[in-house]
């Protein structure tokens, strides 16, 4: 079966439907599947539930799907960089389920690994624990969190081979591997598809079994918060 598609629109064909759940990789604007997000905007799919650590910024990343009101609900840990998000949420147009960052990562990992739920110390004694099962382990309280299985996942890697084996680069890895595994179908965009056999099998970060469709493209890779130091004279 051929996994490589010519572009993002083709790679999403037949997969999108109103009301679906999407797991997305990325942290801030780092390692986000920007080409697939743009294609979902073009497709106009609505009432989306999106599990993603962040919601992009106004006009980039998942922010573009917020601007077009294609998103019904976000499952995120931090949305502080997005004014349109804040406006839609405070006016009641957008649902938001805050998850602690590690809980969100583990919910995606668990969903992809066939784990229905897990108990964690994170959130004990906070609003996050409201309504959740509490269990004592070794005398300490843990709360039950459930795995997330998404209709599709959209992720970004650095390199792939045509079989879908992925290599990520630096901190652009972030949520991409757990999000990739959480989707029933995973679509991945990369900067370069390299020939079979050119990736060292010992250096593959995510094996191709998790990746169903693949595209190569050019990425803007916008920097959210550029910080530098001066060279000493």
């Amino acid at each position: 079966m051929k996994k490589v598609y010519p572009n993002a629109d083709a790679a999403l064909e037949g997969l999108l439907f109103d009301g679906m759940t999407i797991a997305s990789g990325g942290f801030g604007l780092c390692g986000i599947p920007e080409l697939l997000i743009a294609a979902i905007e073009r497709a106009g799919t609505r009432n989306l539930t999106i599990a993603s650590n962040n919601a992009g910024v106004d006009g980039f990343g998942l922010g573009v799907l917020l601007a077009t009101k294609q998103v019904k609900k976000m499952i995120s840990s931090y949305v502080g960089e997005n004014a349109e998000f804040m406006r839609q949420y405070l006016s009641g147009e957008l649902e938001l389920e805050f998850n602690p960052q590690g809980t969100l990562a583990e919910r995606l990992r668990a969903g992809g690994a066939g784990i229905g739920g897990f108990y964690t110390r994170t959130g004990v004694g906070t609003v996050i624990a409201d309504g959740k099962d509490v269990k004592l382990f070794d005398g300490k309280e843990y709360i039950l969190e459930t795995g997330i299985v998404a209709d599709i996942s959209i992720v970004k890697a650095w390199k792939a081979d045509p079989s879908g084996n992925l290599v990520f680069r630096k901190t652009a890895r972030n949520f991409n591997p757990p999000a990739a595994t959480a989707g029933k179908i995973c679509i991945c965009e990369v900067e370069e598809i390299v020939p079979l056999g050119s990736l060292d099998p010992d250096h593959i970060h995510l094996p191709g079994i998790y990746v169903h469709r693949l595209i190569q493209g050019t990425h803007e890779k916008r920097i959210e918060n550029r910080t530098t130091r001066k060279k000493e004279a």
């Binding site: 942290f27 780092c30 969100l104 990562a105 901190t171 890779k221 920097i223 918060n225 550029r226 910080t227």
Partner: peptide
């Protein structure tokens, strides 16, 4: 240094940073 920012290398505050000889990368889980 100015001009050496890498969009794939940021900290949790989304600031551009650098790596060290002992640096390791891993996923969020």
């Amino acid at each position: 240094y100015e001009g050496e920012e890498d969009p794939d290398l940021i900290n949790a505050g989304k600031q551009t940073i650098t790596e060290l000889p002992q640096t390791a990368y891993f996923d969020s889980s």
